[in-house]
């Protein structure tokens, strides 16, 4: 389904057309469930989060019209933000991250790079300009919703050091993307 078609489905959802909402769910729920699962790392909680996410999409679809985001970016943002909010709201943060899964995201292979869209190639190239551990921290934060505190513990640096690392990395990333 093309971005334009998804845009139409979101608009129709904003008009409270349930058939459009059904189709939107059918075409996007696997991606958004993947987001919830990766962030929450707990199937039951990810299922609850997914329900909340689609309830939000139904009630807030008109907000999409006021953004300049692409439809998938908007949908992923709704899911990511909700999943990360849930993650932060947990009373006891998951003590031990499954580190291999939580932090390390293997560098993309040449094949997957060739297949990826140009935006993906650009951000991968820009992340490649950062020091390896910082690029890993940026990816870990974005994909898993790791907090400053968790990243600091994982990389064994003080919290403020991690904050400085990531802030500088974000500024470098932006500078590279806008080059």
């Amino acid at each position: 389904m093309t971005p334009d078609e998804i845009t139409k489905l979101i608009f129709r959802t904003a008009l409270k057309e349930r058939a459009a909402f059904d189709l939107l769910y059918r075409h996007t729920s696997a991606k958004l469930f993947g987001v919830c699962l990766r962030v929450l790392k707990d199937r039951a909680e990810a299922e609850e989060a997914l329900q909340d996410v689609y309830v939000k999409i139904w009630t807030k679809a008109d907000r999409f019209a006021a953004t300049d985001l692409s439809p998938i970016t908007w949908l992923v943002a709704v899911a990511r933000n909700h999943a990360i909010d849930r993650l932060r709201a947990r009373k006891a943060p998951a003590a031990e991250l499954d580190e291999a899964q939580a932090i390390a995201d293997p560098k993309p292979s040449p094949e997957s790079l060739a297949q990826a869209g140009s935006d993906r190639r650009r951000i991968d190239a820009c992340l490649g300009e950062l020091e390896t551990d910082r690029a890993m921290a940026v990816r870990g934060a974005y994909l898993n919703g790791d907090s400053y505190a968790e990243l600091a513990a994982h990389f064994d640096v003080p919290l403020n050091t991690m904050r400085t690392w990531l802030r500088r990395s974000l500024l470098k990333l932006r500078e590279c993307l806008e080059r």
């Binding site: 729920s29 469930f33 993947g34 329900q51 985001l69 998938i72 908007w74 869209g117 993307l177």
Partner: peptide, 30 residues
Amino acid sequence: EDWETRLAPMADAYEKVEPPANAKSIIDTR
């Protein structure tokens, strides 16, 4: 919003996972 757009390509790495078959009917009931 500008940062959502900048960082969005990283979201390609999220794998698609089919939610359980009854998830949509729970959402509809809610």
